[in-house]
Simulated scan of single mutants.
Amino acid sequence: MLKSVKVRDYMTIDLVTFKADMDLFRAIDVLLAHRISGAPVVDDEGHLLGLLSESDCLRGILSGSYHEEAGGTVASVMTVVVENIDADADIIKAAEHFIHKGRRRLPVMDEGLLVGQISRRDVLRAVKAYNEHGAPK
């Protein structure tokens, strides 16, 4: 049963992350270079502060163009209220979240610390593996 498949079994642990004081255009360069649509923003201890998405970047650029101010920092545009999921949650809970909330990715937490990220694609990998083999791989 898919409910036995845990988020931690399919989450990405080698994450690209940003610091809040990073220059917005540098962060955009990183997103483009890694071909990702967003990433967590963390402090020096690795605590989750927010998420930076392509939408956040576009919003920041548009806002800056109206005020004739280019750039800014990640902190000035990132999403601060961040939904997340526990590493031991079942994969079905992640899938439901993606469907009902329209998110592409969720930070994965374990005892209050960021330990990874799960995406829609990761959930699809889990379902495919379960369908092919009857158990997680």
Rank of each mutant, 00 (worst) to 15 (best):
M1N: 12
M1T: 15
V5L: 14
K6I: 10
V7N: 01
D14M: 02
K19C: 12
D21C: 04
M22S: 10
D23T: 10
L24H: 11
A27R: 04
R35I: 12
R35Q: 15
S37L: 06
S37E: 04
V42F: 05
E45C: 12
E45S: 13
E45D: 14
L49T: 05
L49W: 02
L49C: 08
G50P: 02
L51C: 09
L51H: 03
L51F: 01
D56I: 00
L58A: 11
L58G: 04
L62G: 07
S63D: 06
G64A: 05
G64N: 04
E68A: 05
G71N: 10
S76Y: 02
M78W: 01
V81P: 02
I85Q: 02
D86I: 06
D88T: 12
D88A: 04
A89S: 13
A95D: 06
E96V: 10
F98R: 04
L106I: 05
M109R: 09
M109I: 15
D110G: 04
G112S: 09
L113R: 15
L113A: 13
L114H: 08
Q117S: 12
I118L: 14
D122K: 08
R125H: 14
A126I: 01
K128H: 15
E132Y: 04
E132I: 06
E132R: 04
G134Q: 07
P136S: 11
P136G: 07
K137I: 10
